[in-house]
């Protein structure tokens, strides 16, 4: 699998959704590592990098962090104007997942969460995004991508 995991952080700096894709038959875990150190460290790092990026560029232009890579993985980030952060962790071979992240937001998130009466939008302290339709549709979308092998 060249896509390792998918996280969503809300505007209150909490991880509301985490999805891991593993090679085994169980297809990966959903929402099991929201409170983990990995999630917290990842968010802290992205937050600090965002601050640095805004200080490095000139004042007017928007300087958004798009991806971050190491030898073993690449992190792709997309932030909406409402403070939602979509993060995908993948192999370093994959170059640009901005359009995928945009699709996840504008299509799947908006349709299944924002437009869904019975699903919360502003998550309370211990609420997670566990909407089964959202999970199954995003899984299907991500696994249908050519980069997901």
């Amino acid at each position: 699998m060249t896509l390792h995991s998918f996280y969503i952080f809300d505007r209150h700096c909490r991880c509301v959704y985490s999805r891991e894709y593993t090679q085994g038959s169980d297809g990966g875990s959903t929402n099991r590592s929201n409170e983990s150190d990995t999630a917290k460290l990842m968010f802290g790092m992205l937050y600090s990098l965002k601050n640095i990026a805004s200080k490095l560029g000139d004042k007017e232009a928007r300087n958004n962090l798009k991806s971050l890579s190491t030898g073993k993985f690449r992190l792709h980030l997309f932030e909406t104007a409402t403070g939602l952060r979509f993060v995908i962790v993948s192999d370093p071979a994959i170059d640009n997942l901005q359009s995928v992240l945009w699709e996840l937001y504008s299509n799947y998130y908006v349709r299944n969460v924002a437009q869904n009466a019975l699903s919360p939008v502003d998550f309370a302290c211990d609420e997670l995004l566990a909407n089964p339709k959202f999970v199954s549709e995003t899984d299907r979308f991500l696994s249908s991508l050519p980069v997901f092998r």
Binding site: R62, T82, Y105, Y109, V110, A114, V121
Partner: peptide
Amino acid sequence: GMRLIEEFLAKTGAQR
């Protein structure tokens, strides 16, 4: 309004 803004941003791609 809290939900509407997400759809607005998704449709227009607007930034802040």
